[in-house]
């Protein structure tokens, strides 16, 4: 997970921001309670979004209180009371982080990947026991992804497929009993996964050119050693279509859900946060570009 799914902060109401952070805290504390302190470091915004979204489709009342925590010992912060969705999101967080760290270790022998995956091993085993099917499905998709990358797949659509399917698996949470809601969530997840994968690929372009590593965008649009900026200029329009269309499909699925609460936060993320991020990265203001400005 790459942490691209964020709210458009300036547009959030202060109350909404508080609730958003409350969910974030709640997820962090749930991980701590279920898996111990070290896995708490793996917390991500994307899973917080999943937690908020899943919780929003249920009629559980929203409750919380102000608490202290290790990361912020001085000031009490609002946290939402956890429920089954917090537990689900925390399990998935551990599973995904473990796989991504392990991947880093296997690929690049990075120290962070090695120690991280070792530290998460126990937690991962516990989470796998709780969700054996999800886990094996995720593992399958990651294997597909690796194969595609090894074969230097030259279609962005095809390359995005495994990660998109992985996200579909994640969003089709077993705690949601209604079949059509689950299907709708799954389609949201699929398109969000596509978006994340593609935006990350675009964001990594300069890095991948420098290190000569695989990037589906470079392969599909025949990068021929030209200047990075002129290459970006060349592919921007096609990617803008691909990304925005994925977002429009997310929006279509979202409007079919019965949202019981947190509508303000979700609207903010889905209508504004994602597109603002897309524009920022397409115009070269992503997190990998900061040094160059």
């Amino acid at each position: 997970m790459f942490g691209y799914v964020e709210p458009d902060k300036p547009e959030l109401k202060i109350r909404e921001f508080d609730v958003f952070r409350g969910y974030y805290c709640s997820l962090c504390k749930t991980i701590g309670k279920r898996y111990g302190q070290i896995p708490r470091l793996s917390l991500s915004y994307d899973l917080t979004f999943l937690y908020i979204l899943l919780d929003a489709t249920s009629a559980f009342p929203l409750g919380g209180r102000r608490e202290r925590c290790i990361a912020h010992p001085l000031k009490k912060r609002f946290r939402v009371f956890s429920n089954i969705f917090a537990e689900y999101a925390s399990d998935m967080n551990v599973i995904l982080t473990y796989y991504s760290l392990k991947d880093k270790w296997d690929d690049e022998k990075s120290l962070l990947g090695g120690t991280g995956s070792l530290a998460l091993k126990m937690a991962f085993n516990k989470a796998r026991k709780l969700h054996p099917e999800k886990c094996s499905a995720i593992e399958g998709y990651l294997k597909d992804l690796r194969t595609l990358e090894k074969n230097k797949c030259d279609s962005v659509d095809e390359a995005a497929e495994p990660f998109a399917s992985l996200m579909r698996e994640l969003f089709e949470c077993g705690h949601i009993k209604d079949e059509s809601t689950r299907k709708t969530l799954g389609w949201m997840g699929y398109n969000l996964g596509r978006w994340i994968y593609l935006i990350d690929a675009f964001d990594d372009l300069s890095k991948d050119i420098k290190h000569k590593s695989y990037n589906p965008i470079l392969c599909q649009y025949d990068f021929n050693g030209e200047d990075v900026e002129s290459f970006k200029e060349r592919v921007r329009k096609a990617l803008n279509f691909n990304l925005t269309y994925s977002l429009s499909e997310i929006e279509k699925a979202y409007s079919l859900l019965d949202i019981e609460k947190n509508k303000g936060i979700l609207d903010n993320i889905l209508y504004s946060g994602l597109i603002v991020k897309t524009d920022a990265i397409l115009q070269g203001r992503g997190k990998n570009e900061k040094e160059s400005i």
């Binding site: 279509f241 925005t244 269309y245 929006e251 209508y271 504004s272 597109i275 603002v276």
Partner: peptide, 19 residues
């Protein structure tokens, strides 16, 4: 229709009113 769908996403009131 495809082009419309894509452009339509930016037309939602939440985004349009702000930006």
């Amino acid at each position: 229709n495809l082009n419309q769908q894509r452009a339509g996403y930016r037309q939602n009131p939440y985004y349009r009113n702000t930006y």
